[in-house]
Nucleic acid binder design. Structure first.
Lengths: 250, 250
DNA sequence: GATCTGCCTTGATACAGATCAACCAAGGAA
DNA sequence: TTCCTTGGTTGATCTGTATCAAGGCAGATC
């Protein structure tokens, strides 16, 4: 139990768990919640499978254990906007609300754990550090959403693509050992061109064109369609339009 | 104290306080927090005055008592995107974080109350219903941010303007007595054309043109530049691109 | 091996909204 | 009164991205 105590400490690794992500080790947290006997069941989804349909009851709380899910809003005429990425340790659900406004879909193979609703609410009251952590996570997501609003409202297509690549690269890099040498970074895109387009408020053609342009300009290298190498992180960051001093590894 | 107990009940009026907004009466909440001796001081700002500069320390928690503040992100070359509206009872601040990524500016004359940081955190732990309410508010803001992401990414200029007018009208209507007859609604725009543009990811010229177009088409009536009348809420909702069955008064 | 299907690329063209620029109206100061 | 400022409107033109359309490639299926 002791390794789980410091659940809020940033990028902490318990030393036993292979998953390490963002502010907390997801498995540790899940384990702790399981020990508190709050987890009702685990459930697996295949890539592409729908977790929640828009309009479904949302009377539950669940958390991503492994894999990636996306959160999408759709307009009547079919225009779609992705509004969130759910990564390991992220929560979905809104007990007390009757309906969801968006679809949740598995992008990769996905494992989620579902909580017992009533005990969860009691736990919220009785276990302050969990309640506090939920608030912190929600505030983080709000900050991320606000950064996306800037991207969606004011950035050019090239800046949007660069920003997305930078974000994925950063997340990917944070999973590996932090290295002094950030010369080159390589990763696989977890999204199709269409999903990227939905994320960025573009069409898939524009995404494809801008990826080609970045390749032509030497900002990225493509091996196949999904495998991306960034020879110079600095050069990529130049393209994002963001303040340059932001620092790549947070 | 008893009137403040049910602090989470939706759109509850304490019967003594002239301000009624969203899920809770802001003054009541502020009063309760004051009784808990958590409020450090109140402070007034004039319209246009900056509350927090981007990059300032954010080591505090504050809440809007009266007036409206905006939350804005700015890029190096001056492109600006509004990412939030702070209304009475909304909170800002993120104790534990060193710097803010955005400007907070008073749009109208503004009164805020600042909390004692340390006791606030203790209160978070010791007063579950306040912690829970903070989480609910943050989740509401996240939902609102996600709706804006759809607007910014996928809506046309006309749909953006209509959506903004609908949102302001809805908020304004919720401040008055709920009425069966929603035939016509009248209100004053709290934003300049430029602020509207920053909110919607447009230029002020496009905002002006689309306002003129909506006027020409009889969707709205303008008296001066700011005073708006909506003869038919249904007709306006048709223009927003949103699902029509959403219901105007939530 | 042939065909199919999902995902991606590239080209030609259209158009919504940005940009540049002139002007207007109201309010305040001199 | 006149000048000046602030916020808003409208017109002409430009341009970035959408749209429409035609392939291409790799893995799956027969």
């Amino acid at each position: 139990m002791s390794v789980h105590r410091d659940i809020r400490s940033p990028t902490q690794d318990c030393g036993e768990c292979p998953i390490r992500h963002r502010a907390v080790c997801a498995r540790c947290e899940t384990d702790e919640l399981a020990q508190l006997e709050q987890i009702k069941y685990y459930r697996s989804y295949q890539a592409g499978q729908t977790v929640i349909w828009s309009g479904d009851k949302m009377d539950f709380v669940a958390s991503v254990v492994t894999g990636i899910a996306t959160l999408t809003q759709t307009m009547e005429d079919g225009r779609r906007q992705m509004v969130g990425l759910l990564l390991p340790s992220d929560f979905v659900g809104r007990p007390g609300r009757s309906a969801a406004a968006y679809d949740v879909t598995a992008t990769t193979d996905l494992v989620m754990c579902c909580f017992r609703r009533k005990p969860f609410e009691e736990m919220m009251a009785s276990t302050p550090h969990i309640a506090h952590r939920l608030l912190e996570m929600t505030l983080d997501e709000l900050d991320a959403a606000r950064e996306w609003m800037l991207l969606l409202g004011r950035k050019t297509a090239r800046e949007k693509i660069s920003s997305l690549l930078a974000i994925i690269a950063r997340r990917d890099a944070s999973l590996k050992e932090p290295r002094a040498d950030l010369g080159a970074i390589t990763f696989d895109l977890p999204l199709t061109r269409e999903e990227m387009a939905d994320y960025l408020g573009l069409t898939l053609e524009t995404v494809s064109r801008q990826m080609s342009a970045l390749k032509r300009d030497g900002i990225i290298t493509l091996d196949g369609k999904r495998h991306v190498t960034i020879p110079s992180v600095d050069a990529l960051m130049e393209e994002t339009g963001d303040d340059s001093d932001g620092g790549f590894l947070v």
